[in-house]
Nucleic acid binder design. Structure first.
Lengths: 364, 364
DNA sequence: CCTCGGTGTGGAATCGTTTCCAATACGCTC
DNA sequence: GAGCGTATTGGAAACGATTCCACACCGAGG
């Protein structure tokens, strides 16, 4: 038939593609000599089909390289097989880990994931949600920054929402999956206090998400009979430069502080870098604990003690809550996943206790 | 009208949502007393509409909280406003950075991004591509692991593909955006040689993507008149444990090696950790350079000298190539973005030259 | 011989948009 | 006042799937 039998198949494809566009179910039906309904039945595995017809349809589909269109299907079935994931920032290791969890779980359900980053901007977040609704996603998983209004709109539009890692303050009633930040911070503070620290600093953010961390910090100190010294609590905006400024301010002006708890890995990074700049040795001059056990914690010298929050599992579970058993989704309180204090080398008893050298915080 | 004027609006919404499902263009048309065509014209801004009608339609749309369905629109226009992004692993800082670039650019074009991770598994990659084609994405950006066959299928199906960061070996002819790995590695090797190093190790991977790095490593050594010593070249699989094993093997068995180039940040991490374990001081006993300037490079002690590859810009550009001017996309050679050697504190002249202390590589 | 209950099968409606095309009305010019 | 271009507008046909419903066929039971 063709001049070159070996490449005939390939030529076929090229010609078909080049001329008409992608094959539709109608093309398959025609080629197999059956009706579209039958093709649909074969491909979706529903309804009775005789083995002979099935084979013909399957063959036709293969020959045409037929791929059902998610658009056509979604229009009819009202499901897109896609869900939305909104995070503050993909390059944040914690968010990335969470996203990996979502991806992993979504995959087991055969769902796709539409990702976007809101950069802690409520307005941008609202716009993203709008677009996700427009895409008719089957659900949204959100590490939310803004207030609830955007999410309320989504839920009104019939799109289920699950919050991950951060519980929004506002009214939107939606299932939530969180890390047990309180327990983590409590463990960290108690660890420091147990080592003998009395003047412990706190680096937090103005964003809502470190709120419980700060509260727990205060509460634990109080429980242990230690006064909370307001001048040791500093808050930064969630940007890198702001974190630095905050850390610099705290470390420079409080020479009697012997330990610091960074409520965020960005703040932990800032603390480490500023300490190095100020020639403060960790842990001899300053003990450091950080929330979020990002990969570099172990690479630091000394390796950083940190509160490990299970980002991947949070993402996985959030996705599971969203997709499994949507009926039971609405009632039920937040899922809380354990956080764990990973003790490494960045904390020691304070200088006075251990007999270490007096600290030298020269401001060059 | 309502018993409580203040909440009437809200009740309206609830009732409408609870009963019927989301408003369609037909609902808007009816409410505004116009035809669907007119609504479409108003909302998409095409065609002439009288100001009065426009206002009525806009009002109706607002009252109904109407959101056009991307499904219906996509079916008709053959564009989904969504593109696919396939990376090896979202939690990898470089991939995350690249993804952020894609997100950023896609946003300026009003496109959504469907993300998935192939985990360096060609089979999985093929499956992902299949799903993206089924979703009828407008294009795919790929940091590909597998051979070209999956990508060929996508392109046959009419989905444009752009490769980012890695050029696939196979036949699939598609635009590509790369970092100038060769220049980066060359700069790194020359830097080490310039410092006086003669016995330089290389940690690479079995994956194809470090191929040019190894070649350039060899070539640069040769140019500088240095023999390439095969026993100093080690390759690991792209998993963490394999990287460790490779680093351990190299550092332990080659006590005369004075510097090492890690072709990957995972390998750099392994090198640093193994060196610490072996009580090798960096840079006194061993100089270390790594490809990919991940955030922790600066946090290391000493901070790591690294080849910075512009992940974000690669992603941004890949997306731009995909979306802007699709005609000119096909011809034209790969876009190559500069990589830069960022010199920090992990390299110094070898011990023999600088008069440093003799190294003590005890294997405890 | 005639119903009856299945089994396969195809036609046609439907999902929510865009867009072509025809129809209407309006303001001019001649 | 007729003719005509132009500004608006609505109806209807796609787009590509699923699915309801009707129909044909066939062996069994009355």
């Amino acid at each position: 038939m063709g001049r070159c039998v070996l490449t005939e198949h390939g030529e076929d494809h090229v010609r078909e593609r080049a001329m008409s566009r992608a094959a539709t179910i109608k093309d398959v039906a025609r080629r197999a000599g059956v009706g579209v309904a039958t093709v649909s039945r074969v491909l979706s595995g529903s309804g009775p089909v005789s083995p002979a017809t099935r084979d013909r349809v399957l063959a036709a589909a293969r020959e045409l390289e037929y791929r059902p269109s998610a658009l056509g299907r979604g229009l009819k079935t009202r499901r897109t097989g896609t869900l939305g994931l909104v995070v503050p920032d993909v390059t944040d290791p914690f968010c990335a880990e969470l996203a990996a969890g979502v991806l992993e779980c979504a995959r087991t359900f055969g769902e796709n994931v539409l990702l976007d980053a809101a950069h802690d901007d409520p307005e941008r977040e609202a716009e993203i949600v709008d677009r996700l609704v427009e895409q008719r996603v089957d659900g949204i998983i959100a590490v939310s920054a803004g207030e609830g209004t955007a999410w309320e709109a989504a839920m009104r539009a019939g799109v289920p929402v699950v919050f991950a890692d951060r519980a929004p303050a506002g009214p939107p009633q939606a299932p939530t999956v969180l890390a047990d930040d309180a327990a983590g911070v409590r463990a960290a503070v108690e660890y420091l206090v147990g080592l003998g620290h009395r003047r412990i600093g706190f680096l937090g953010t103005t964003a809502a998400d470190t709120g419980v961390r700060e509260e727990t910090f205060r509460a634990t100190l109080a429980e242990r009979g230690l006064a909370v010294r307001e001048e040791l609590l500093v808050r930064a905006r969630p940007q890198r430069d702001s974190a630095f400024a905050a850390a610099a301010g705290l470390l420079q002006s409080r020479p009697d502080m012997t330990a610091v708890l960074a409520a965020t890995h960005l703040l932990g990074e800032a603390a480490v870098l500023v300490a190095r700049e100020l020639d403060l040795r960790i842990p001899a001059d300053l003990s450091v604990v950080m929330v979020d056990d990002v990969p570099w914690a172990e690479l630091c010298d000394p390796p950083l003690t940190a509160v490990a929050r299970p980002g991947r599992r949070i993402g996985y579970q959030a996705c599971e809550v969203l997709l499994r058993d949507p009926a039971r989704r609405d009632r039920s309180r937040p899922v809380v996943l354990a956080a764990e204090l990973v003790i490494r080398g960045s904390c020691s008893p304070p200088a006075g206790l251990s007999g270490g050298t007096a600290r030298s915080a020269r401001t060059r």
